[in-house]
């Protein structure tokens, strides 16, 4: 049983990462119906932004100071990239046919990866990420079940981020405007809502959460690399679709389910299909199965019914 509970802990940690990134997909998709393929790269840039911040700090800065600064640095880089991307790549295409922005998104994704690979110093292979939160520091949850400090940080950051976002969208004036824009963009404009600003806000919030995920995965695995955004991005989008795209609770639920499927399949799938080599395949198998039975995801989609 200990193995099971330990894997459950791991699944929750993984699910938290997917959920954080999935929120960005779901918000943007809910409002502009765009699969922002480059969102995975925004997550990756968060990790690199934090690394850059760390390297800029004098060595020996205590973790209590450097860690918050790294989070800020990561968020700053991700948010900047997302705003530029929205303004110059996506906004001009807002009235173009659906396929055009998707191709643009793939282009932006390739571009950002290659930008980091070619121009970030020594980023052709993975770069070491500072181990500020000692991974050896394990908290015992049971006789043989434990959670490491970076894992705990990931879950905490994710929960705080998710709760804040959901409160913001539900309670704040801007959050209401986001909901309105998602349900009916034209009428939202008639209410006096600046929909352009709302769309940027969705990109910014999504980028900030993705940056949090990027930093915490750097801390967990002790490295960041230019390619880390692709598979995480695809999985996070899968999570968003699983939960019902456009649906904020759905993205979180989808993230945790995907984390669970991946970790548990790795552990318990019948031989020879268990083990790390197959874990990514399992996520997609589950996605296909879920969509066959619930074509709009587990909690239902929430996107504008455009005329």
């Amino acid at each position: 049983m200990d193995v099971f509970f330990q894997q459950l802990v791991n699944a929750i940690v993984l699910g938290a990462t997917y959920g954080l990134v999935a929120l960005g997909y779901t918000m943007v998709y809910g409002i502009v119906q765009l699969i922002n393929f480059a969102h995975g790269e925004i997550y990756m840039l968060g990790g690199f932004g934090a690394l850059t911040t760390y390297l800029a700090l004098p060595s020996g800065t205590p973790a209590g100071i450097s860690l918050p600064l790294m989070l800020v640095g990561g968020i700053a880089v991700s948010v900047t990239a997302a705003v530029i991307m929205e303004r110059f790549a996506y906004r001009p295409l807002r009235s173009a046919p659906r396929l055009a922005p998707l191709i643009t998104a793939i282009g932006v994704s390739v571009f950002l990866q290659e930008l980091v690979r070619n121009f970030y110093p020594h980023a052709r292979s993975a770069r070491n990420f500072p181990q500020l939160v000692n991974p050896d520091y394990q908290i015992r949850l049971g006789s043989n079940v434990q959670i490491s400090a970076p894992q705990l940080l990931t879950v905490t950051v994710a929960l705080v981020g998710m709760v804040t976002l959901s409160t913001f969208v539900r309670r704040s004036r801007t959050g209401r405007a986001m909901q309105a824009t998602a349900q009916d963009p034209d009428t939202a404009r008639l209410m006096g809502i600046d929909t352009d600003r709302i769309i940027v806000t969705a990109f910014v919030l999504g980028a900030a959460l993705a940056a949090l995920a990027g930093v915490s995965s750097g801390l967990q695995f002790g490295q960041v690399d230019f390619h880390m955004g692709f598979i995480t991005g695809v999985k996070a989008f899968t999570a968003a679709v699983l939960g019902g795209i456009g649906n904020i609770s759905g993205a979180v639920l989808g993230g945790f389910i995907l984390g669970l499927v991946e970790v548990m399949a790795t552990q318990y799938a019948p031989d020879p299909f268990s083990g790390g080599a197959w874990k990514d395949a399992w996520s997609f198998v589950v996605l296909i199965i879920v969509l066959v039975f619930r074509p709009t995801g587990l909690l239902g989609e929430r996107v504008a019914a455009r005329a």
Binding site: Q179, A180, Q183, D184, T187, R302
Partner: peptide, 8 residues
Amino acid sequence: GRRIFPLM
């Protein structure tokens, strides 16, 4: 067509 926000 009224265009109220249906989910609110």
